[in-house]
Design a binder for these strands. Structure first.
Lengths: 243, 243
DNA sequence: CATTTCTCAAATGTAAGACAATTACCTCGC
DNA sequence: GCGAGGTAATTGTCTTACATTTGAGAAATG
Protein backbone atom coordinates (compact mmCIF):
# COMPACT_ATOMS: atom_id res chain seq x y z
CA UNK A 1 0.00 0.00 0.00
CA UNK A 2 2.28 2.57 1.29
CA UNK A 3 5.43 3.26 -0.45
CA UNK A 4 6.70 6.76 -0.20
CA UNK A 5 8.12 7.79 -3.54
CA UNK A 6 10.75 10.48 -3.51
CA UNK A 7 8.44 13.28 -4.39
CA UNK A 8 8.48 16.91 -3.47
CA UNK A 9 7.30 18.75 -0.44
CA UNK A 10 7.30 18.08 3.26
CA UNK A 11 7.37 14.63 4.66
CA UNK A 12 3.93 15.14 6.12
CA UNK A 13 2.61 16.11 2.70
CA UNK A 14 4.19 13.07 1.10
CA UNK A 15 2.73 10.76 3.71
CA UNK A 16 -0.66 12.38 3.40
CA UNK A 17 -0.53 11.84 -0.34
CA UNK A 18 0.48 8.22 0.09
CA UNK A 19 -2.42 7.52 2.42
CA UNK A 20 -4.83 9.45 0.25
CA UNK A 21 -3.79 7.40 -2.76
CA UNK A 22 -4.36 4.25 -0.77
CA UNK A 23 -7.88 5.43 0.01
CA UNK A 24 -8.69 6.56 -3.51
CA UNK A 25 -7.33 3.40 -5.07
CA UNK A 26 -9.33 1.26 -2.72
CA UNK A 27 -6.47 -0.30 -0.78
CA UNK A 28 -8.15 1.11 2.30
CA UNK A 29 -11.88 0.63 2.44
CA UNK A 30 -14.52 2.75 4.07
CA UNK A 31 -14.58 2.51 7.86
CA UNK A 32 -11.36 0.53 7.80
CA UNK A 33 -8.95 1.39 10.54
CA UNK A 34 -5.58 2.80 9.64
CA UNK A 35 -2.53 1.59 11.52
CA UNK A 36 -1.89 3.48 14.72
CA UNK A 37 0.20 6.60 14.63
CA UNK A 38 3.12 4.75 16.13
CA UNK A 39 2.89 2.00 13.53
CA UNK A 40 2.65 4.51 10.71
CA UNK A 41 5.63 6.38 12.09
CA UNK A 42 7.58 3.16 12.18
CA UNK A 43 6.48 2.20 8.70
CA UNK A 44 7.34 5.50 7.06
CA UNK A 45 10.44 5.92 9.20
CA UNK A 46 9.39 9.27 10.56
CA UNK A 47 8.41 10.57 13.96
CA UNK A 48 4.92 10.56 15.34
CA UNK A 49 4.36 14.33 15.10
CA UNK A 50 5.10 14.10 11.38
CA UNK A 51 2.56 11.34 11.00
CA UNK A 52 0.08 13.38 12.96
CA UNK A 53 0.52 16.36 10.69
CA UNK A 54 -0.18 14.11 7.74
CA UNK A 55 -3.30 12.75 9.39
CA UNK A 56 -4.52 16.25 10.17
CA UNK A 57 -4.20 17.12 6.51
CA UNK A 58 -6.47 14.24 5.66
CA UNK A 59 -8.86 15.06 8.47
CA UNK A 60 -9.17 18.60 7.11
CA UNK A 61 -10.50 17.10 3.90
CA UNK A 62 -12.87 14.81 5.78
CA UNK A 63 -11.04 11.80 4.37
CA UNK A 64 -10.49 10.27 7.79
CA UNK A 65 -11.96 10.61 11.24
CA UNK A 66 -10.15 9.88 14.48
CA UNK A 67 -11.32 8.37 17.69
CA UNK A 68 -9.59 8.30 20.99
CA UNK A 69 -9.25 5.53 23.45
CA UNK A 70 -8.68 1.82 23.22
CA UNK A 71 -9.65 0.41 19.84
CA UNK A 72 -9.61 3.99 18.65
CA UNK A 73 -7.52 5.32 15.84
CA UNK A 74 -7.98 6.82 12.42
CA UNK A 75 -10.69 5.44 10.18
CA UNK A 76 -11.40 6.00 6.53
CA UNK A 77 -14.38 8.27 6.47
CA UNK A 78 -17.29 7.92 4.09
CA UNK A 79 -17.36 11.31 2.44
CA UNK A 80 -20.94 12.35 2.97
CA UNK A 81 -22.75 14.74 0.70
CA UNK A 82 -23.07 17.13 3.60
CA UNK A 83 -19.33 17.21 4.18
CA UNK A 84 -18.82 17.73 0.48
CA UNK A 85 -21.38 20.55 0.47
CA UNK A 86 -19.53 22.36 3.21
CA UNK A 87 -16.20 22.02 1.47
CA UNK A 88 -17.66 23.17 -1.80
CA UNK A 89 -19.20 26.23 -0.26
CA UNK A 90 -16.10 27.45 1.52
CA UNK A 91 -13.92 26.75 -1.48
CA UNK A 92 -16.28 28.51 -3.85
CA UNK A 93 -16.70 31.46 -1.53
CA UNK A 94 -12.98 31.95 -1.15
CA UNK A 95 -12.43 31.47 -4.85
CA UNK A 96 -14.83 34.28 -5.66
CA UNK A 97 -13.61 36.61 -2.95
CA UNK A 98 -9.93 36.13 -3.71
CA UNK A 99 -9.87 36.27 -7.48
CA UNK A 100 -11.70 39.40 -8.43
CA UNK A 101 -14.30 37.45 -10.32
CA UNK A 102 -16.66 39.97 -11.83
CA UNK A 103 -20.22 39.97 -10.66
CA UNK A 104 -21.31 39.25 -14.22
CA UNK A 105 -19.17 36.13 -14.49
CA UNK A 106 -20.36 34.69 -11.21
CA UNK A 107 -23.95 35.56 -11.97
CA UNK A 108 -23.76 33.99 -15.40
CA UNK A 109 -22.35 30.78 -14.01
CA UNK A 110 -24.92 30.57 -11.28
CA UNK A 111 -27.93 31.05 -13.49
CA UNK A 112 -26.58 28.86 -16.26
CA UNK A 113 -26.25 26.04 -13.75
CA UNK A 114 -29.62 26.70 -12.20
CA UNK A 115 -31.31 26.63 -15.55
CA UNK A 116 -29.78 23.19 -16.01
CA UNK A 117 -31.72 22.01 -12.96
CA UNK A 118 -34.96 23.72 -13.76
CA UNK A 119 -36.49 21.14 -16.12
CA UNK A 120 -35.59 18.29 -13.79
CA UNK A 121 -36.99 20.18 -10.83
CA UNK A 122 -40.18 20.90 -12.70
CA UNK A 123 -40.56 17.18 -13.28
CA UNK A 124 -39.74 15.91 -9.86
CA UNK A 125 -40.34 18.58 -7.24
CA UNK A 126 -42.27 17.38 -4.24
CA UNK A 127 -44.87 19.29 -2.30
CA UNK A 128 -42.18 19.87 0.29
CA UNK A 129 -39.94 21.72 -2.12
CA UNK A 130 -42.82 23.83 -3.33
CA UNK A 131 -43.82 24.67 0.22
CA UNK A 132 -40.29 25.79 1.02
CA UNK A 133 -40.20 28.00 -2.04
CA UNK A 134 -43.53 29.57 -1.22
CA UNK A 135 -42.53 30.11 2.40
CA UNK A 136 -39.33 31.88 1.37
CA UNK A 137 -41.24 34.02 -1.09
CA UNK A 138 -43.58 35.03 1.71
CA UNK A 139 -40.67 35.86 3.96
CA UNK A 140 -39.07 37.95 1.26
CA UNK A 141 -42.20 40.05 0.97
CA UNK A 142 -42.11 41.03 4.63
CA UNK A 143 -41.14 44.70 4.85
CA UNK A 144 -38.95 44.60 7.94
CA UNK A 145 -36.43 42.17 6.55
CA UNK A 146 -32.78 43.19 6.54
CA UNK A 147 -30.80 42.93 3.34
CA UNK A 148 -28.79 40.06 4.76
CA UNK A 149 -31.92 38.13 5.72
CA UNK A 150 -33.40 38.83 2.32
CA UNK A 151 -30.32 37.39 0.63
CA UNK A 152 -30.30 34.38 2.94
CA UNK A 153 -33.90 33.71 2.06
CA UNK A 154 -32.98 34.06 -1.58
CA UNK A 155 -30.37 31.38 -1.13
CA UNK A 156 -32.89 29.12 0.59
CA UNK A 157 -35.33 29.62 -2.26
CA UNK A 158 -32.79 28.66 -4.86
CA UNK A 159 -31.60 25.73 -2.80
CA UNK A 160 -35.13 24.39 -2.74
CA UNK A 161 -35.36 24.87 -6.48
CA UNK A 162 -32.14 22.94 -7.02
CA UNK A 163 -32.98 20.21 -4.53
CA UNK A 164 -36.26 19.71 -6.35
CA UNK A 165 -34.30 18.06 -9.12
CA UNK A 166 -33.80 15.15 -6.71
CA UNK A 167 -30.26 14.62 -7.90
CA UNK A 168 -27.77 14.82 -5.04
CA UNK A 169 -24.85 15.26 -7.41
CA UNK A 170 -26.50 18.30 -8.93
CA UNK A 171 -27.35 19.66 -5.49
CA UNK A 172 -23.76 19.23 -4.44
CA UNK A 173 -22.42 21.05 -7.47
CA UNK A 174 -24.93 23.85 -7.21
CA UNK A 175 -24.49 24.40 -3.49
CA UNK A 176 -21.19 26.14 -4.13
CA UNK A 177 -22.46 28.23 -7.00
CA UNK A 178 -25.53 29.43 -5.15
CA UNK A 179 -24.11 30.00 -1.69
CA UNK A 180 -20.88 31.55 -2.85
CA UNK A 181 -22.89 34.26 -4.53
CA UNK A 182 -24.38 35.46 -1.27
CA UNK A 183 -21.53 37.76 -0.26
CA UNK A 184 -21.67 39.30 -3.70
CA UNK A 185 -25.42 39.68 -3.47
CA UNK A 186 -25.15 41.32 -0.08
CA UNK A 187 -23.44 44.33 -1.57
CA UNK A 188 -26.65 45.15 -3.41
CA UNK A 189 -28.83 47.22 -1.14
CA UNK A 190 -32.32 46.53 -2.27
CA UNK A 191 -34.97 49.17 -2.46
CA UNK A 192 -38.56 48.20 -1.79
CA UNK A 193 -39.25 48.30 -5.51
CA UNK A 194 -36.32 46.00 -6.27
CA UNK A 195 -37.52 43.47 -3.80
CA UNK A 196 -41.05 43.47 -5.14
CA UNK A 197 -39.75 42.76 -8.61
CA UNK A 198 -37.54 39.92 -7.42
CA UNK A 199 -40.34 38.42 -5.38
CA UNK A 200 -42.57 38.55 -8.44
CA UNK A 201 -39.98 36.69 -10.47
CA UNK A 202 -39.60 34.14 -7.70
CA UNK A 203 -43.35 33.60 -7.76
CA UNK A 204 -43.23 33.18 -11.51
CA UNK A 205 -40.55 30.53 -11.15
CA UNK A 206 -42.41 28.77 -8.36
CA UNK A 207 -45.55 28.74 -10.49
CA UNK A 208 -43.65 27.20 -13.38
CA UNK A 209 -42.19 24.54 -11.13
CA UNK A 210 -45.59 23.82 -9.65
CA UNK A 211 -47.06 23.45 -13.15
CA UNK A 212 -44.21 21.15 -14.18
CA UNK A 213 -43.33 23.66 -16.87
CA UNK A 214 -39.57 23.51 -17.26
CA UNK A 215 -39.44 25.96 -20.13
CA UNK A 216 -41.29 28.60 -18.15
CA UNK A 217 -38.95 28.06 -15.23
CA UNK A 218 -35.98 28.66 -17.49
CA UNK A 219 -37.58 31.84 -18.78
CA UNK A 220 -38.20 32.99 -15.23
CA UNK A 221 -34.61 32.31 -14.25
CA UNK A 222 -33.34 34.22 -17.26
CA UNK A 223 -35.52 37.17 -16.35
CA UNK A 224 -34.24 36.98 -12.80
CA UNK A 225 -30.66 36.93 -14.02
CA UNK A 226 -31.24 40.04 -16.11
CA UNK A 227 -32.94 41.80 -13.22
CA UNK A 228 -30.08 40.89 -10.90
CA UNK A 229 -27.54 42.19 -13.36
CA UNK A 230 -29.49 45.41 -13.80
CA UNK A 231 -29.56 46.01 -10.06
CA UNK A 232 -25.87 45.28 -9.74
CA UNK A 233 -25.04 47.68 -12.53
CA UNK A 234 -26.98 50.41 -10.78
CA UNK A 235 -25.03 49.82 -7.60
CA UNK A 236 -21.69 49.85 -9.38
CA UNK A 237 -22.62 52.95 -11.36
CA UNK A 238 -23.64 54.79 -8.20
CA UNK A 239 -20.47 53.69 -6.50
CA UNK A 240 -18.17 54.88 -9.24
CA UNK A 241 -20.09 58.16 -9.50
CA UNK A 242 -19.54 58.79 -5.82
CA UNK A 243 -15.81 58.30 -6.00
CA UNK B 1 -8.72 38.59 15.34
CA UNK B 2 -8.14 35.40 17.06
CA UNK B 3 -10.19 34.51 19.96
CA UNK B 4 -10.74 30.86 20.52
CA UNK B 5 -14.34 30.30 21.53
CA UNK B 6 -15.12 27.26 23.59
CA UNK B 7 -16.20 25.13 20.72
CA UNK B 8 -15.93 21.45 20.13
CA UNK B 9 -13.19 19.28 18.79
CA UNK B 10 -9.46 19.19 19.08
CA UNK B 11 -7.46 22.24 19.89
CA UNK B 12 -5.82 22.07 16.50
CA UNK B 13 -9.24 22.03 14.84
CA UNK B 14 -10.39 25.02 16.90
CA UNK B 15 -7.29 26.97 16.05
CA UNK B 16 -7.59 26.08 12.38
CA UNK B 17 -11.17 27.31 12.43
CA UNK B 18 -10.19 30.54 14.15
CA UNK B 19 -7.53 31.28 11.57
CA UNK B 20 -9.80 30.29 8.70
CA UNK B 21 -12.47 32.64 9.98
CA UNK B 22 -9.89 35.40 10.13
CA UNK B 23 -9.03 34.75 6.51
CA UNK B 24 -12.61 34.49 5.30
CA UNK B 25 -13.70 37.58 7.17
CA UNK B 26 -10.84 39.56 5.76
CA UNK B 27 -8.91 40.16 8.97
CA UNK B 28 -6.00 38.51 7.21
CA UNK B 29 -5.47 39.62 3.66
CA UNK B 30 -4.01 37.74 0.75
CA UNK B 31 -0.25 37.28 0.94
CA UNK B 32 -0.24 38.60 4.48
CA UNK B 33 2.07 36.82 6.82
CA UNK B 34 0.66 35.00 9.79
CA UNK B 35 2.46 35.25 13.11
CA UNK B 36 5.22 32.71 13.52
CA UNK B 37 4.38 29.33 14.95
CA UNK B 38 5.94 30.28 18.26
CA UNK B 39 3.89 33.46 18.45
CA UNK B 40 0.70 31.63 17.57
CA UNK B 41 1.47 29.02 20.19
CA UNK B 42 1.97 31.76 22.74
CA UNK B 43 -1.15 33.59 21.67
CA UNK B 44 -3.44 30.55 21.77
CA UNK B 45 -1.69 29.17 24.84
CA UNK B 46 -0.89 25.86 23.21
CA UNK B 47 2.26 24.12 22.19
CA UNK B 48 3.95 24.49 18.86
CA UNK B 49 3.06 21.02 17.55
CA UNK B 50 -0.59 21.84 18.11
CA UNK B 51 -0.24 25.03 16.15
CA UNK B 52 1.54 23.15 13.41
CA UNK B 53 -1.27 20.63 13.15
CA UNK B 54 -3.70 23.49 12.76
CA UNK B 55 -1.56 25.05 10.05
CA UNK B 56 -1.32 21.76 8.22
CA UNK B 57 -5.07 21.55 8.17
CA UNK B 58 -5.19 24.91 6.47
CA UNK B 59 -2.38 24.00 4.11
CA UNK B 60 -4.30 20.91 3.04
CA UNK B 61 -7.07 23.22 1.87
CA UNK B 62 -4.60 25.50 0.10
CA UNK B 63 -5.60 28.33 2.41
CA UNK B 64 -2.02 29.04 3.42
CA UNK B 65 1.43 28.33 2.11
CA UNK B 66 4.56 28.10 4.20
CA UNK B 67 8.11 29.16 3.55
CA UNK B 68 11.20 28.34 5.47
CA UNK B 69 14.00 30.56 6.50
CA UNK B 70 14.30 34.06 7.83
CA UNK B 71 11.31 36.20 6.91
CA UNK B 72 9.61 32.94 6.11
CA UNK B 73 6.44 31.78 7.74
CA UNK B 74 2.88 31.05 6.80
CA UNK B 75 1.17 33.29 4.30
CA UNK B 76 -2.44 33.57 3.29
CA UNK B 77 -2.62 31.92 -0.07
CA UNK B 78 -4.60 33.25 -2.98
CA UNK B 79 -6.81 30.31 -3.79
CA UNK B 80 -6.13 29.82 -7.48
CA UNK B 81 -8.61 28.31 -9.85
CA UNK B 82 -6.17 25.48 -10.45
CA UNK B 83 -5.98 24.61 -6.77
CA UNK B 84 -9.74 24.74 -6.60
CA UNK B 85 -10.02 22.49 -9.67
CA UNK B 86 -7.85 19.87 -8.05
CA UNK B 87 -9.82 19.95 -4.82
CA UNK B 88 -13.09 19.75 -6.68
CA UNK B 89 -11.99 16.77 -8.70
CA UNK B 90 -10.76 14.70 -5.80
CA UNK B 91 -13.78 15.55 -3.70
CA UNK B 92 -16.21 14.75 -6.49
CA UNK B 93 -14.43 11.53 -7.35
CA UNK B 94 -14.50 10.32 -3.78
CA UNK B 95 -18.09 11.41 -3.37
CA UNK B 96 -19.16 9.30 -6.31
CA UNK B 97 -17.05 6.29 -5.41
CA UNK B 98 -18.07 6.24 -1.76
CA UNK B 99 -21.79 6.84 -1.94
CA UNK B 100 -23.12 4.34 -4.44
CA UNK B 101 -24.34 7.05 -6.72
CA UNK B 102 -26.05 5.38 -9.63
CA UNK B 103 -24.59 5.79 -13.06
CA UNK B 104 -27.83 7.39 -14.20
CA UNK B 105 -27.73 10.06 -11.50
CA UNK B 106 -24.13 11.01 -12.19
CA UNK B 107 -24.70 10.98 -15.91
CA UNK B 108 -27.77 13.14 -15.64
CA UNK B 109 -25.96 15.68 -13.52
CA UNK B 110 -23.00 15.81 -15.83
CA UNK B 111 -24.95 16.34 -19.01
CA UNK B 112 -27.38 18.77 -17.42
CA UNK B 113 -24.45 20.91 -16.36
CA UNK B 114 -22.71 20.59 -19.70
CA UNK B 115 -25.81 21.63 -21.55
CA UNK B 116 -25.78 24.76 -19.40
CA UNK B 117 -22.37 25.63 -20.87
CA UNK B 118 -23.16 24.75 -24.46
CA UNK B 119 -24.81 27.99 -25.56
CA UNK B 120 -22.09 30.09 -23.96
CA UNK B 121 -19.42 27.94 -25.52
CA UNK B 122 -21.06 28.20 -28.90
CA UNK B 123 -20.90 31.96 -28.58
CA UNK B 124 -17.39 32.35 -27.30
CA UNK B 125 -15.26 29.35 -28.24
CA UNK B 126 -11.90 30.25 -29.70
CA UNK B 127 -10.09 28.48 -32.50
CA UNK B 128 -7.95 26.92 -29.83
CA UNK B 129 -10.88 25.20 -28.15
CA UNK B 130 -12.16 23.96 -31.47
CA UNK B 131 -8.75 22.61 -32.39
CA UNK B 132 -8.54 20.72 -29.11
CA UNK B 133 -11.96 19.20 -29.65
CA UNK B 134 -11.09 18.12 -33.18
CA UNK B 135 -7.78 16.68 -32.06
CA UNK B 136 -9.44 14.62 -29.36
CA UNK B 137 -12.04 13.40 -31.82
CA UNK B 138 -9.25 12.30 -34.11
CA UNK B 139 -7.51 10.50 -31.30
CA UNK B 140 -10.71 8.74 -30.33
CA UNK B 141 -11.06 7.35 -33.83
CA UNK B 142 -7.68 5.64 -33.70
CA UNK B 143 -8.27 1.90 -33.47
CA UNK B 144 -5.46 0.94 -31.11
CA UNK B 145 -6.63 3.12 -28.25
CA UNK B 146 -7.22 1.48 -24.88
CA UNK B 147 -10.50 2.05 -23.10
CA UNK B 148 -8.77 4.14 -20.47
CA UNK B 149 -7.14 6.36 -23.08
CA UNK B 150 -10.44 6.65 -24.91
CA UNK B 151 -12.13 7.83 -21.71
CA UNK B 152 -9.31 10.23 -20.93
CA UNK B 153 -9.65 11.73 -24.38
CA UNK B 154 -13.39 11.96 -23.80
CA UNK B 155 -12.71 13.97 -20.66
CA UNK B 156 -10.33 16.25 -22.56
CA UNK B 157 -12.96 16.80 -25.24
CA UNK B 158 -15.59 17.79 -22.73
CA UNK B 159 -13.16 19.98 -20.84
CA UNK B 160 -12.48 21.90 -24.02
CA UNK B 161 -16.21 22.24 -24.58
CA UNK B 162 -16.69 23.61 -21.09
CA UNK B 163 -13.67 25.89 -21.21
CA UNK B 164 -15.02 27.33 -24.43
CA UNK B 165 -17.63 29.13 -22.36
CA UNK B 166 -14.79 31.37 -21.15
CA UNK B 167 -16.23 31.46 -17.66
CA UNK B 168 -13.71 30.26 -15.07
CA UNK B 169 -16.40 29.78 -12.46
CA UNK B 170 -18.29 27.45 -14.76
CA UNK B 171 -15.09 25.61 -15.65
CA UNK B 172 -14.35 25.16 -11.99
CA UNK B 173 -17.77 23.77 -11.24
CA UNK B 174 -17.79 21.48 -14.24
CA UNK B 175 -14.31 20.12 -13.68
CA UNK B 176 -15.58 17.97 -10.85
CA UNK B 177 -18.65 16.77 -12.69
CA UNK B 178 -16.75 15.81 -15.81
CA UNK B 179 -13.63 14.30 -14.32
CA UNK B 180 -15.34 12.44 -11.53
CA UNK B 181 -17.31 10.54 -14.15
CA UNK B 182 -14.21 9.00 -15.64
CA UNK B 183 -13.93 6.06 -13.24
CA UNK B 184 -17.58 5.30 -13.89
CA UNK B 185 -17.05 5.56 -17.63
CA UNK B 186 -14.07 3.26 -17.48
CA UNK B 187 -16.27 0.35 -16.51
CA UNK B 188 -17.89 0.52 -19.93
CA UNK B 189 -15.90 -1.57 -22.35
CA UNK B 190 -16.47 0.01 -25.70
CA UNK B 191 -16.89 -2.00 -28.85
CA UNK B 192 -15.68 -0.54 -32.14
CA UNK B 193 -19.26 0.23 -33.07
CA UNK B 194 -19.88 2.04 -29.77
CA UNK B 195 -16.86 4.20 -30.28
CA UNK B 196 -17.81 5.12 -33.82
CA UNK B 197 -21.19 6.27 -32.60
CA UNK B 198 -19.73 8.34 -29.81
CA UNK B 199 -17.17 9.90 -32.12
CA UNK B 200 -19.95 10.80 -34.52
CA UNK B 201 -21.85 12.53 -31.75
CA UNK B 202 -18.70 14.34 -30.67
CA UNK B 203 -18.28 15.56 -34.22
CA UNK B 204 -21.87 16.70 -34.27
CA UNK B 205 -21.29 18.69 -31.10
CA UNK B 206 -18.05 20.16 -32.37
CA UNK B 207 -19.80 21.19 -35.58
CA UNK B 208 -22.53 22.90 -33.59
CA UNK B 209 -19.98 24.74 -31.49
CA UNK B 210 -18.07 25.76 -34.58
CA UNK B 211 -21.26 27.09 -36.16
CA UNK B 212 -22.14 28.98 -32.98
CA UNK B 213 -25.32 26.97 -32.80
CA UNK B 214 -26.04 26.50 -29.12
CA UNK B 215 -29.33 24.70 -29.64
CA UNK B 216 -27.70 22.09 -31.86
CA UNK B 217 -24.98 21.60 -29.27
CA UNK B 218 -27.61 20.95 -26.64
CA UNK B 219 -29.29 18.44 -28.92
CA UNK B 220 -25.99 16.71 -29.55
CA UNK B 221 -25.27 16.52 -25.83
CA UNK B 222 -28.69 15.06 -25.16
CA UNK B 223 -28.13 12.43 -27.83
CA UNK B 224 -24.74 11.66 -26.32
CA UNK B 225 -26.30 11.31 -22.89
CA UNK B 226 -28.86 8.85 -24.20
CA UNK B 227 -26.21 6.88 -26.04
CA UNK B 228 -24.05 6.75 -22.93
CA UNK B 229 -26.96 5.53 -20.85
CA UNK B 230 -27.79 2.89 -23.45
CA UNK B 231 -24.25 1.57 -23.39
CA UNK B 232 -24.16 1.53 -19.62
CA UNK B 233 -27.43 -0.36 -19.45
CA UNK B 234 -26.05 -2.99 -21.80
CA UNK B 235 -23.03 -3.44 -19.60
CA UNK B 236 -25.10 -3.71 -16.44
CA UNK B 237 -27.54 -6.11 -18.11
CA UNK B 238 -24.71 -8.33 -19.29
CA UNK B 239 -23.16 -8.23 -15.87
CA UNK B 240 -26.31 -9.24 -14.02
CA UNK B 241 -27.01 -11.97 -16.61
CA UNK B 242 -23.58 -13.45 -15.96
CA UNK B 243 -24.08 -13.66 -12.22
C1' DC C 1 -24.55 -16.13 39.20
C1' DA C 2 -25.32 -11.47 37.71
C1' DT C 3 -23.98 -6.86 38.13
C1' DT C 4 -21.30 -3.26 39.24
C1' DT C 5 -16.93 -1.27 39.81
C1' DC C 6 -11.93 -1.10 39.33
C1' DT C 7 -7.94 -1.27 36.99
C1' DC C 8 -5.17 -1.65 33.00
C1' DA C 9 -3.72 -1.10 28.38
C1' DA C 10 -3.95 1.06 24.01
C1' DA C 11 -4.56 4.88 21.41
C1' DT C 12 -4.95 9.71 20.46
C1' DG C 13 -4.21 14.60 22.24
C1' DT C 14 -0.91 17.85 24.03
C1' DA C 15 3.42 19.71 25.72
C1' DA C 16 8.40 20.86 25.91
C1' DG C 17 12.86 20.93 24.24
C1' DA C 18 16.27 20.14 20.94
C1' DC C 19 18.45 20.05 16.50
C1' DA C 20 18.55 20.49 11.32
C1' DA C 21 17.75 23.12 7.21
C1' DT C 22 16.87 27.11 4.93
C1' DT C 23 16.99 31.86 3.90
C1' DA C 24 17.06 36.99 4.48
C1' DC C 25 19.90 40.33 6.26
C1' DC C 26 23.93 42.35 8.22
C1' DT C 27 28.77 42.90 8.86
C1' DC C 28 33.38 42.78 7.70
C1' DG C 29 37.29 42.64 4.85
C1' DC C 30 39.09 43.80 0.45
C1' DG D 1 31.54 49.59 -3.65
C1' DC D 2 31.20 44.79 -3.42
C1' DG D 3 31.46 40.14 -2.38
C1' DA D 4 31.98 36.51 1.21
C1' DG D 5 30.75 34.88 5.28
C1' DG D 6 28.36 34.92 9.58
C1' DT D 7 24.05 35.43 12.14
C1' DA D 8 19.44 35.34 13.45
C1' DA D 9 14.83 33.96 12.50
C1' DT D 10 11.72 30.57 11.03
C1' DT D 11 9.96 26.27 9.57
C1' DG D 12 10.79 21.07 9.44
C1' DT D 13 11.68 17.12 12.16
C1' DC D 14 12.77 14.14 16.12
C1' DT D 15 12.58 12.66 20.92
C1' DT D 16 10.47 12.15 25.11
C1' DA D 17 7.03 12.65 28.19
C1' DC D 18 2.53 13.13 30.12
C1' DA D 19 -2.70 13.68 29.89
C1' DT D 20 -7.08 11.97 28.37
C1' DT D 21 -10.23 8.89 26.63
C1' DT D 22 -12.17 4.47 26.01
C1' DG D 23 -12.79 -0.43 25.67
C1' DA D 24 -12.13 -4.78 27.90
C1' DG D 25 -11.21 -7.81 31.33
C1' DA D 26 -10.66 -8.76 36.25
C1' DA D 27 -12.33 -8.35 40.70
C1' DA D 28 -15.51 -7.32 44.19
C1' DT D 29 -20.23 -7.39 45.75
C1' DG D 30 -25.15 -8.20 46.00
Amino acid sequence: MKIDPKSSGDLSAQIATAIKDAIVSGVLNIDERLPSEAELADHFQVSRPTVREALKRLAAQALIRTQRGASGGAFVNRLSFEDAYAQQITTSTLLLSMNEVSFETACEARYALERACAPLSADRRTADHLATMRAEIFRQSQPGLTDEAFCASDVAFHRALVDGAANPVLSYQLAGAVEAMQPLMNIITFTARDRAQIVDLHSEIADAIENCDGAAAITGLTDLENETLRLAQNVFAARSAKS
